[in-house]
């Protein structure tokens, strides 16, 4: 059996904002078809790393290739091959859902007829009505509906690599279940998925592997069950809090509650 080709390869990647080092010499590789959970506490450097790997911001040092293209020398080629759901879920609010998705399709050079067909498939999957997409401005959508449009916009061009930053934010329970099934199906189709989330039980169930970072540095990298077993933590959530100081937060929460009693 031929060795799996790394679709994402990150070497010594760093990002500095003035004097603050947001990402500190991060290195990892992801083969095709893998679902990687990308974890870390607030301010750990997760979003900065994802923004670098999608070409949104330039690294200060280090290198990375995505889908075979160097991030610094061929950013447009990288962008053609990645889909990204940013944490902000930003959309142009004064466009209708259909106008927005057609605009995104045009940016990837997808012919109009093909784009509308794909959009229809996605809205059927997400249980949205075509009328909603054509008649209402995105500003009038609920948070969950807007998130579905953003996910559709990330997958519309059928990218081999997809980055999700808190994709379940705003989705209802049914949509969340459907989404989890979707990314597992996408991975089986050979797509590489990087999944950043704070909902650790979902990560534990969905991901083949987790990468935990803190203060821009790599802390752990491996299959969730193997990591949990190796540290004797019982669950991924327990392991995560032990590594990133979450246990201390539980004590502080108790202190905080005391201020209301006094």
């Amino acid at each position: 059996m031929a060795p799996a080709v790394d679709v994402i390869s990150v070497q010594q990647l760093s990002k500095r904002y003035g004097e603050q080092l947001a990402v500190d010499q991060l290195s990892f590789a992801v083969p095709a078809g893998q679902i990687v959970g990308f974890l870390g506490p607030n301010g750990a450097g997760k979003s900065t790393t994802l923004k670098m790997l999608t070409g949104m911001i330039a690294p200060t040092s280090g290198s990375a290739t995505v889908a075979g293209f160097d991030l610094v020398t061929h950013p447009i080629e990288v962008k053609r091959r990645v889909g990204f759901v940013p944490e902000s879920g930003a959309v142009f609010e004064s466009l209708t859902g259909l106008e927005y998705l057609e605009m995104i399709a045009a940016l990837y050079g997808i012919p109009h007829g093909g784009a509308v067909e794909r959009i229809k498939q996605f809205i059927a999957f997400f249980d949205l009505s075509f009328e909603t997409l054509t008649d209402k401005l995105l500003g009038a959508y609920s948070k969950g509906m807007r998130r579905k449009v953003v996910i559709t916009a990330a997958l519309l061009h059928n990218p081999p690599v997809v980055f999700f930053d808190e994709p379940l934010d705003g989705l209802d329970a049914n949509a969340a279940v459907g989404f989890k099934a979707l990314i597992q199906t996408l991975a089986r189709e050979g797509k590489t998925i990087v999944y950043s989330s704070h909902i650790l039980d979902v990560v534990e169930r969905v991901c083949d592997r987790v990468i935990i970072i803190d203060q821009g540095k790599l802390l752990l990298d491996g299959a969730p069950e193997a990591l949990v077993a190796a540290h004797g933590s019982g669950t991924l959530e327990r392991l995560f809090t032990e590594l990133t100081g979450g246990a201390e937060l539980e004590r502080r929460a108790e202190d905080f509650a005391k201020t209301f009693r006094s």
Partner: peptide
């Protein structure tokens, strides 16, 4: 027309024109 590869620059011009006409907020 349905099968033609759309022009990226035209899509961007259309986008920014719509944003100018409608504003960036929809409330």
């Amino acid at each position: 027309r349905e099968n033609a590869v759309p022009s990226q620059s035209r899509a961007l011009r259309r986008l920014f024109l719509m944003l100018f006409l409608r504003g960036r907020s929809a409330r």
